[in-house]
Design a protein around this nucleic acid. Structure first.
Length: 289
DNA sequence: TACATTTGACCACA
DNA sequence: TGTGGTCAAATGTA
């Protein structure tokens, strides 16, 4: 990371900090002031920019194997990668508000659970879902959901195959299809092709810069993890991206219902953002400037 | 009654 | 042979 990038990152983070403080102050007010939502969105995009800067700087060190291994639930993915060769997949991580909260895992598509399996080395079992319309419409889309070892609120969701049923028109399904099509070779899993596509992180960065990858979508590890460079690049971002955080806040607190409780939840998630991100980013930037 | 979930068993792959 | 992925019967629920 050169000096310019460091200062760009430091500047972004300084903005984030200022906005968090402001948001914190506004959270005490009831009802929530009009600007709070906008501030959340700004906050999200600012952290998102920070992550992009950090990511573009970290890729090289990650490619050389210097990246930190997955800290949560990732020990099972190596074995998993032996399976489903030839099926493109998209991986996401979603955080729920509580252990019982399943709403945050709802992607708007209808799934039917068809199995659950204890995974070697994983603390929590993996659940297997397939499209409800598998039999009626021959839709072969499936997804696997597994709770992270280190953080029970964090769920690893792996999607296999695009929806071909009536749900294919759903925004979530279309987004998934787009991400699946971004898979190198369109036939390898996100974490399956660690031996190819070293240029993919650059591609992703370019897409992000060009606005081809919508920052408003839930954070996907697909292209990052698909990159050979990031052998397990996803593990370097052990939490939701701020954009996904924003998305979650929006989805779990629909318009008008953004209540008092959000303050604590938001605060907790940001606390995690800063504490968890410290290692992978190694941001001693303030000391550095 | 229809549909979803649970769970033990089976299969395929490395 | 061990493990992940899937099947299908049993069970639960609206």
């Amino acid at each position: 990371m050169d000096g310019g990038e460091k200062s760009a990152l430091a500047s972004e983070l300084a903005q984030v900090l200022a906005m968090v403080r402001e948001l914190e102050a506004r959270m005490d007010q009831d009802p929530l002031p009009a600007g709070a939502r906008e501030l959340c969105a700004e906050l999200a995009s600012s952290v998102d920019r920070s992550i992009r800067i950090a990511r573009s700087c970290c890729v090289d060190s990650l490619a050389s194997g210097a990246g930190s291994p997955r800290s949560d639930g990732g020990n099972a993915t190596a074995a998993q990668s032996k399976r489903r060769q030839g099926t493109p997949c998209v991986r996401r991580q979603l955080r729920t508000a509580s252990v019982q909260d399943a709403a945050a895992l709802d992607d708007g598509l209808s799934w039917r659970k068809y199995g659950q399996k204890d995974i070697l080395g994983a603390k929590y079992p993996r659940s297997y879902f397939r499209c409800t319309h598998r039999h009626s419409q021959g839709c072969l889309a499936t997804k696997h959901v597994q709770r992270a070892d280190g953080d029970p609120l964090l769920h690893d969701v792996v999607y296999h195959g695009a929806h071909t049923c009536a749900q294919a028109a759903h925004p979530s399904a279309q987004q998934l299809r787009q991400e699946l099509q971004l898979q190198p070779g369109h036939g390898h899993g996100a974490h399956e092709d660690q031996d190819q596509g070293a240029s993919t992180p650059a591609l992703e960065t370019e897409c992000l810069r060009a606005g081809l990858l919508e920052p408003t979508t839930p954070y996907s590890f697909a292209s990052a993890a698909a990159a050979g460079a990031g052998a397990d690049f996803a593990g370097c971002f052990p939490l939701l991206s701020p954009t996904a955080l924003d998305w979650q806040l929006r989805s779990s607190h629909p318009a008008g219902s953004l209540g008092v409780g959000i303050g604590m939840e938001f605060e907790t998630q940001f606390e995690e953002l800063f504490t968890n991100a410290t290692e992978p980013f190694q941001w001693d930037l303030y000391a550095d400037n």
